[in-house]
Design a binder for these strands. Structure first.
Length: 640
RNA sequence: GCCGCAGUAGCUCAGUUGGUAGAGCAGCUGAUUUGUAAUCAGCAGGUCGUGAGUUCGAGUCUCUCCUGCGGCACCA
């Protein structure tokens, strides 16, 4: 007797074990046709899975969110089958569903070309048309290893070894093609549909290990229907238009050139944005009780040996040798400098917590392949700070930083910030007790504030756990921005102490934190986030005064002067061009405000305001306009 | 760093089987004085990323290096 409860509360009873497929059939032919998988006691299973005990069952159809993952995983299998049909001798390795799609890693000596992708896509469609049933088989692991070895599938054979001994090894078969896979899968290849597209080929290391073989990864996107696929492709096209590298050129914000790979040439307009970000952060930090310092760009190698960075990151450091044979390090981080400031004079427990900030430009010789526009560079500016405090103050100081970061992101419209918590790594220093303390302080800060986070086990720094605050770019790539790290190491290595209540010297806990993280990266994210259409307070050029004929030139100059005097960043366009031309040009340049002046405005001391993206104009008296724009252009409330 | 792809005028791109570089926009000059997303005409602009090789001849073929792009690895 098997009792199956359905989501609507009904209970079905069976005398003998059954399958989800049979249950669906029993409920109705329509459901049986639409059924893709089953959720049995919360676990996603094949439709054909045998049900031999009481359970809760939900039939999964294309309408369910989770169906998409199944479908994408199937797409990966179908692609692998297509590839092996077309290119015999190609080995399959792993191929999971991922956000928006799937990939599969192949081992093949010939590279896949864009033409190959088209062929593979066609063959995938054929396999869908064949509507091959997808069936699951449980295998003996040694038998399966034998089969894979015989087929020359050494990667697959290697994978089997990693499956825990008590877990069954399952194989999914579609036609005469099969793959070792945990499943679940759709009932047949026909259910996949054709709303998929192969996107790109890329290299990927076997098992994500750079010492192992380089495989070829084919990425695809897959959706429930053609409409979703089209929407996704359109989203990517839109995202490309707001790529910060493209907007950086189009809006004359910055450039790169060969002589300085990974280093930015900021142009006037881009630098205005950068300066605005610094101004903003400085104001926030002033309000939050931080000091601000500046430390040397280059310091003797010995300091970096003492801090431990020399040993760990030597190959990523820029150095410079002087005539006197001293080797200096161009700073890759600010903490050793910050600690030198802390160490001046004797610090008392009464001085703690001491918050020392620095807008520090650092240089790191990053791997060439890592460079990416403003997001990953070799020279960047951190809005860095080091908070020296006692163990007792640790959690509340962490909480203050977390609150500050999220509050700051809100001023830029980022509400959906992901927080990652990285705990103790294998290779670490310090006792487990200290780690317990540090981790619980960090976690406690998050939990008391009610923020959710994801865990990155073992990803902490060797000296302490860390939080990372992750923002997304226009095409869904994640970039780490803010960070908060707890450090018991550096103060000890560099000899930072304070005198406690007991008159003894103690070692402070040191928090490393950056809120924007890298100003360059944050600027890049903002460019994409706003698609170049910055809010008024951030816009490099806030307004352009444009004339209709040169009869209004004199008045236009007055208007611009008044705007500038009111603190607005205003340009003027006196060129002998039609107003249509000027409107178009400044609109494309994404200037938020155009103040159009012609004979009428000059005569009446008014301006015609046109807002970016708007059609209508608004005629205002000049005084009134300036008063209003001044208010509109004000920085966020938080720093007023 | 690794795998793959790319580099032609400031930008976007064209350039047939190797025969000695072209367009649009931008720029400059002139005309036009214009009312909310491109006024017209003319001019100028490139040792085709770098270095080598093959060839009678290379933007086109081969190799080196540089830079970029897409991933992977890395990210104190």
């Amino acid at each position: 007797m098997v009792a199956i409860r359905l989501p609507d509360g009904n209970e079905l009873n069976f005398d003998a074990p059954t399958t989800a497929a049979a249950v669906a059939q029993g409920i109705g032919a329509g459901l049986a046709k639409a059924a893709l998988a089953a959720r049995i006691d919360g676990k996603l299973m094949d439709l054909s899975a045998v049900i031999d005990r009481d359970c809760e069952l939900a039939i999964v159809t294309a309408k369910d969110e989770e169906a998409l993952d199944l479908l994408r995983h199937d797409a990966a299998h179908v692609m692998a089958q297509a590839v092996q049909e077309l290119y015999p001798g190609t080995q399959v390795t792993i191929g999971p569903a991922i956000e928006n799609g799937f990939y599969y890693d192949f081992a093949r000596s010939e590279p896949f070309t864009p033409d190959d992708l088209e062929e593979i896509e066609k063959r995938m469609a054929e396999i869908v048309d064949r509507d091959l049933p997808i069936t699951c088989e449980v295998w003996d692991r040694d038998d399966l290893i034998g089969v894979f070895n015989e087929k020359g599938e050494s990667y697959k054979a290697e994978l089997i070894g990693d499956i825990p001994a008590d877990e069954p090894v399952t194989v999914y078969r579609q036609g005469d093609w099969f793959d070792m896979c945990r499943g679940p899968h759709l009932p047949s290849t026909g259910k996949l549909g054709k709303a998929f597209k192969l996107m790109k080929v890329a290299g990927a290391y076997w098992r994500g290990d750079s010492t192992k073989a380089m495989l070829q990864r084919i990425y695809g996107t897959a959706w429930a229907d053609a409409k979703q696929l089209k929407a996704h492709i359109e989203m990517l096209e839109e995202a490309e238009k707001r790529d910060h590298r493209r907007l950086g050129r189009e809006m004359d914000l910055f450039h790169f050139q060969e002589e300085a790979p990974g280093a930015i040439f900021w142009h006037d307009k881009g630098w205005r944005l950068f300066r605005k970000l610094v101004d903003y952060m400085r104001a926030r930090q002033d309000l939050a009780g931080y000091q601000e310092i500046a430390t040397p760009e280059i310091m003797d190698r010995s300091l970096w040996e003492a801090s431990g960075h020399w040993e760990t990151f030597r190959e990523h450091m820029y150095t410079t040798q002087t005539e006197d044979d001293r080797l200096y390090v161009i700073k890759p981080m600010n903490c050793p400098g910050g600690i030198q400031v802390f160490k001046q004079g004797i610090k008392s427990y009464r001085d703690l917590p001491l918050k020392i900030a620095e807008f520090g430009k650092v240089h790191r010789y990053e791997a060439s392949g890592a460079l990416h526009g403003l997001m990953r560079v070799r020279a960047f500016t951190q809005d860095d700070a080091h908070i020296f405090c006692t163990h007792e103050q640790l959690e509340s100081e962490c909480a203050k930083v977390v609150r500050l970061i999220l509050d700051i992101y809100k001023d830029f419209g980022f509400e959906d910030v992901r927080i990652k918590f990285s705990d103790r790594p294998e290779k670490r220093i310090g006792s487990d007790e200290v780690w317990d303390n540090l981790e619980s302080a960090l976690k406690g800060a998050l939990e008391h504030l009610g923020y959710s986070y994801t865990l990155n086990p073992g990803e902490g720094a060797f000296y302490g756990p860390k939080l990372e605050f992750v923002l997304r770019d226009a095409i869904g790539r994640d970039w780490q921005c803010g960070t908060l790290q707890v450090d018991m190491n550096m103060p000890a290595r560099l000899g930072a102490t304070y005198v406690g209540e007991d008159g003894e010297r103690h070692q402070p806990v040191m928090l490393h934190r950056a809120l924007f993280g890298s100003l360059e990266r944050f600027a890049g994210i903002l460019i994409e986030h706003y698609a170049g259409k910055f809010p008024l307070w951030l816009a490099p050029v806030q307004a352009v005064v444009a004339t209709i004929t040169n009869e209004a030139d004199g008045y236009a100059r007055d208007v611009q002067e008044r705007l500038v005097a009111a603190g607005l960043r205003a340009d003027i366009d006196l060129r002998n061009e039609k107003i249509n031309y000027k409107v178009r040009e400044h609109s494309l340049a994404k200037v938020p405000l155009m103040l159009v002046v012609g004979g009428r405005e000059a005569e009446n001391a008014t301006v015609a305001i046109r807002r970016l993206g708007g059609k209508a104009q608004e005629i205002l008296e000049l005084d009134q306009a300036i008063a209003r724009l001044r208010v509109e252009a004000a920085a966020p409330e938080s720093i007023r």
